[in-house]
Write a protein that binds this DNA or RNA. Structure first.
Lengths: 139, 139
DNA sequence: TATCTTATTGAAATAATTACAACTTTATTA
DNA sequence: TAATAAAGTTGTAATTATTTCAATAAGATA
């Protein structure tokens, strides 16, 4: 059992979800590839190394992570859910040309809180779309 | 032809999309019911009065409105697209208890622009989730 | 009014996600 | 360490939102 495996097992235990080989691989993939992957992208990549992997398991694991607060869903597009292991407050920018998703800092306190004084806020998402610098240059 | 019909025909013409009875009814529904309805909600409501209405037509019309800048898509939930005739900058709050969606003002300039200096931004969405005051009281 | 373009319709296709039941693995405790 | 209970994994099938497509109808233009 290598160090990162041990670390992941600890994280799972602390969050009250059971460890398993599959979950560690899925979480490991997300930690290493911060591309905000879809469930299908994770499945396609891991099936090469875990031939018995089921797509249902990927969905189950991702849902477990989200419930445990280890990941968040990014619904910047209406036809697919993406997953992000960075659960701290930040915004997401999707390039309409290359499709890549960029993180950017957001000062959430600065977003009009007065109108929402009487609301309990559990989740904050800021989604921008446009063209990234790389794609602007290639035009 | 009543006044609002005439107004809608003008709006469509100005935006370069063709007028039709169905489109005017769909746009009329959205203008009267600012609940950020789904395509299905619009369809279910209008089929009572337009028995030949097709769900495909609802989707086609909504897409036409969005392309023409007459509506925006609200993807606050990953399994359904909602539509909003208010295309001005504002945030959306979804109550996780009653499901209602509330609008709230957002100062978009205040959202960290430095990191995105070199990006062209076409669309800005702010989605919050939590519990609305009404549901907090009923607890 | 004739004609061209665009909208509407409904059935079928697509694609993402979930439900479910059988089986396997993990964690717990004796 | 072995037995047991609880939870995870798998694959198929179901579900749901949305799109495709070809035929038909309606709107715009001259």
């Amino acid at each position: 059992m290598d160090v990162s495996t041990e670390v992941l097992m600890d994280i799972f235990k602390n969050r009250g979800i059971r460890s398993s080989y599959t979950r560690m691989r899925i979480m490991g993939y997300m930690a290493a590839n911060r591309n905000h992957p879809t469930a299908d992208e994770i499945y396609s990549r891991l099936i090469e190394e875990i031939p018995t992997l089921s797509k249902t398991t990927v969905y189950n694991s991702l849902n477990a992570f989200v419930e445990a607060g280890l990941a968040r869903v990014v619904t910047i597009e209406d036809n697919e859910a993406r997953y992000d292991v960075d659960v701290s407050d930040h915004g997401h920018f999707k390039c309409q040309s290359c499709g890549r998703i960029f993180d950017f800092p957001v000062d959430m306190d600065c977003i009009e809180p007065k109108a929402l004084e009487k609301f309990r806020i559990n989740k904050r998402d800021v989604y921008f779309k446009g063209i990234c610098p790389g794609c602007l240059d290639n035009k």
